[in-house]
């Protein structure tokens, strides 16, 4: 099995939501701004609960915000 990666569209979705700042999103979902930064840079895969909370803020489904890529390169 290859390396798993969770990518996301948070940066784009923030832009389309009145250019919401990372701080505003962090406050709405109850985490620190650093966690939002780490998620956007794909340095941290959020828990299912946090993923749902982020999706709810953007009024989207989890699949619209996050995508799962399976990297099979060895």
């Amino acid at each position: 099995m290859g390396k798993c990666r969770v990518s996301n569209n948070i940066r784009k979705l923030r832009f389309y939501n009145d250019e919401m700042t990372q701080q505003e999103l962090a406050e709405q979902v109850g985490v620190t701004r650093q966690t939002i930064v780490a998620i956007e840079k794909a340095k941290y895969s959020p828990s299912l609960e946090l993923a749902f909370r982020i999706a709810l803020v953007f009024d989207s489904s989890v699949a619209e915000v996050f995508s799962y890529d399976l990297d099979d390169k060895k």
Partner: peptide, 9 residues
């Protein structure tokens, strides 16, 4: 001050 501990912390 962001001294809260979230799930990543």
């Amino acid at each position: 001050i962001e001294d809260i501990k979230d799930e990543r912390d």
